[in-house]
Every structure is written in structure tokens, then in C-alpha cells.
């Protein structure tokens, strides 16, 4: 009910081309206000971002359609999303063609499998319009225990319980890294394989030397 901000202008709402009337995506657009507007794209999601919607079912019947639409964008917009609905079973050939298209015509293909998912993509693009990409730059903050467990369990055979027993047996990660194999082997649950794996991984040089 309470929309983040009343739709006052194009700045805070998604612009929708009248062509999209009847598309079930619109009923799923709940988080942002949207308004019809005369635009060459199907959706405008920000100053430099737009989206064209394509159903693969439709694409198979009218292969020319999407090329005309792309041409009509006239090179505008920095990020041009081709929001593609995978609504047919044998999508392989169509997707192969779209991959080639994306290369030639500078569009970015995003696939969705339902109207709700497609609508969510539109909402996300709008809501991240001014966001920083910190969430994908690997700077998550976590507690020590979580990080420690994550660190120790990188080798696949070592599990969470092993991580806890290891660090509690040696007191700190530094001591655990420096431990001799025979010292680790006496810890419950640390069989030969795990011991070997751990000792190899902490001693192995980062770079392979010739």
C-alpha cells in the first residue's frame, strides 16, 4: 500500500510504453509507481537504462520484431536490457541467436522464467539506479567465527565441525596453520586425508614455481 514515494514525475517511477498494455509483468510491478509514457523502449528504468521485453514464443513467430525495436532505440541509453521471457521448451536456437544479437547490437540479455521474476528485475534495476556495486565487490562484513569457519572449510573435505575442533585445539588460526601434521592427527574427526589436505594447502606456494 504505502509506496516508497508518490508518483510525481519520471524521476522516481518506471516509465512504461503503452505497447506493454496487458503484459502480466505490469500487475507484478508493486514496489515502484509506473506510468505510461511515449518512449522508444518498453521500459525506462533510469537516466541511462532502458529495457525491451521479448517473449521467446513471440520471437519465434515474428523474428524481425526485436530487431526493429532495437533499431528504434537509435543508440540511446547506455545500458539496454533485453528482458527475455523463456516461455518455450526448446529455447536453444533462439538463445543462440540472441547471444549473437547482443554482441552485434549492444544489448544485454537477461532471462526470466516468469512474469513475477521479470517484474522483479525491472524493480531491481530501478531501485539500484544510484546504488554502489559494493555488494558484489566482496566486502561483506562478518563475525570472526563465521570468517574463521569459512577460511578453514575452503578445502572440500573439511567441514564446520572440523574447523571448530581445529582452532579450539590450537587456540588460534596462526597456531593451527603452523601445527605439525602429527599434532593435528590426534584431534577427533581429523583423519589422514583431512590432515594431509590442510597441511598441503597452508604450505603450498601461491605461485607454482618452475
Amino acid at each position: 500500500q504505502a509506496l516508497p514515494s508518490r508518483a510525481t514525475g519520471s524521476g522516481s517511477s518506471i516509465l512504461v510504453s503503452p505497447r506493454q498494455k496487458g503484459n502480466p509483468i505490469l500487475t507484478n510491478l508493486r514496489s515502484f509507481a509506473w506510468e505510461y509514457s511515449d518512449i522508444p523502449a518498453d521500459y525506462v528504468l533510469g537516466q541511462t537504462t532502458c529495457a525491451l521485453f521479448l517473449s521467446l514464443k513471440y520471437h519465434r513467430l515474428h523474428p524481425e520484431y526485436i530487431y526493429n525495436r532495437i533499431r528504434n532505440l537509435q543508440g540511446k541509453y547506455n545500458l539496454r536490457i533485453l528482458l527475455t521471457m523463456v516461455d518455450i521448451g526448446n529455447h536453444e536456437d533462439s538463445l543462440k541467436e540472441l547471444a549473437k544479437t547482443s554482441l552485434v547490437n549492444n544489448v544485454t540479455v537477461i532471462l526470466s522464467w516468469s512474469a513475477a521474476e521479470a517484474a522483479r528485475y525491472l524493480e531491481l534495476y530501478k531501485s539500484y539506479e544510484h546504488a554502489n556495486p559494493t555488494a558484489i565487490r566482496g566486502v561483506e562484513s562478518k563475525g570472526y567465527a563465521e570468517k574463521m569457519v569459512e577460511f578453514v572449510t575452503v578445502p572440500r573435505s573439511i567441514n564446520k565441525t572440523d574447523a571448530v575442533t581445529l582452532v579450539s585445539a590450537f587456540g588460534s588460526l596462526r597456531a593451527a596453520v603452523n601445527a605439525r601434521p602429527e599434532e593435528i592427527a590426534v584431534i577427533g574427526g581429523w583423519g589422514e586425508k583431512k590432515v594431509r589436505k590442510w597441511c598441503t594447502v597452508v604450505n603450498e606456494p601461491f605461485r607454482v614455481r618452475k
Binding site: T48, T49, N78, L79, I81, A99, S102, L103, N106, T108, V109, I110, Y121, L124, Y125, Y128, E129, A131, P133, A135, I136
Partner: peptide
Amino acid sequence: VLLTLAFPKLR
């Protein structure tokens, strides 16, 4: 979404 916004040229 964040990735494509950060790198519009990435296909």
C-alpha cells in the same frame, strides 16, 4: 543487476 549496471558493456 548490480553487475550489469556497473559494466553496461559486459554482455
